[in-house]
Design a protein around this nucleic acid. Sequence first.
DNA 1: TGTTTATGTCAACGAGTGTTGATATATTTA
DNA 2: TAAATATATCAACACTCGTTGACATAAACA
Lengths: 202, 202
Amino acid sequence: MSSNSPSANASRGRRAGYSGTRETVLNAAKKRFAHDGYTATSIRKVAADAGVDPALVMQFYKSKDGLFAASLALSEDCLGHIAAAFDGPADRMGETLTYNFLRLWEEGADAEPLMATLRGAASNEVAAAQLREFVQARLLSVIGPKLGEGVGNAQRAGIVVSMLMGLVLSRSMVQIPLVAGISREELARSVGPSIQAVLRGR
Amino acid sequence: MSSNSPSANASRGRRAGYSGTRETVLNAAKKRFAHDGYTATSIRKVAADAGVDPALVMQFYKSKDGLFAASLALSEDCLGHIAAAFDGPADRMGETLTYNFLRLWEEGADAEPLMATLRGAASNEVAAAQLREFVQARLLSVIGPKLGEGVGNAQRAGIVVSMLMGLVLSRSMVQIPLVAGISREELARSVGPSIQAVLRGR
DNA sequence: TGTTTATGTCAACGAGTGTTGATATATTTA
DNA sequence: TAAATATATCAACACTCGTTGACATAAACA
């Protein structure tokens, strides 16, 4: 398979050509961590999924924790859609926020890292810390400013995020039929006004 | 240490005398499963916590799954306090429900089994199924009748329970300071009206 | 008494774990 | 070309895991 073109396999963003096996391994790891949790995911399984020797995974990511950390990395504009929820019509803010929050966790590039973080938090302190930091620091730094500086505003934002994570939990992890069976649109419509009420503090 | 009294160690409720080691082991298992999750909990650790040989744990509970199942068992009147929430003043139903729900997961005899179920659901299908059943069947059989038979009432009850589990998640598992730092009373006061709104369907 | 059952310990099995070092090939660079 | 680096495989290490069978003691029962 020798090609005379100098950089035939230029994968976007990588420094040089080489192979794209690193990403294949990382994608397999993201899937495993997101579906099986931290402890139940083994380097050997990830390697098998990627069709690669386990030692190569270690060579790429140093340790299981290194691979896990790489699997939890979020995209740059991860919170873009969350922030955008506050730019729409003010009276439907709660609904838009709910819809976009669920969407963030359920599809797109950040869905698997976020689910891996959530599942991992059940048995891995690093994942719990990352989720804690994601909610308390990053998410609230986006939502907070939209609420002004009223007393207890940050607290109410934390409560809202917690409740929305509860919906994610029921839908994607526990898969409670009554909640998982509803479309995002309908769910956001049902919950939106109440979310908005909590956010605004009545 | 020989005592001449014939039945010195009569543990309450057990058929005969013997020792109370079974309960000691079960309590150790509940703690481990509730704090570390299913996969990270090993029979050897539980045995060590209980000061006992691992083989004895197997003899008592047959397998790790047997021990896990026993650790998830809930008390008989587990849902009593949840039902009681609907007997108080109607205008504070959401607040009372929230308070009692959080209380159920955070203290008392059922707190550890419930947390073990929640943590276990992240990596163990049995635990996920049990949590699913607990919410969809048992919890809703208590809440549902209190809401009458309006269209979508069960769905809204499922949503409420999911959101309340989100609060538990943030407080006890992820320990997000903003949410874990609030007292149950204050949290129930903040969230109560909105919970009630979701429950009633506006 | 003797028999049965419950309680408890010990050593070991096979399997899976994260991790390492040696080694071989392919690609890039000089 | 040759040197250097990246990619990849293999076998093996020390360890933990759930589980088992043999064996010992203690209590309950006949």
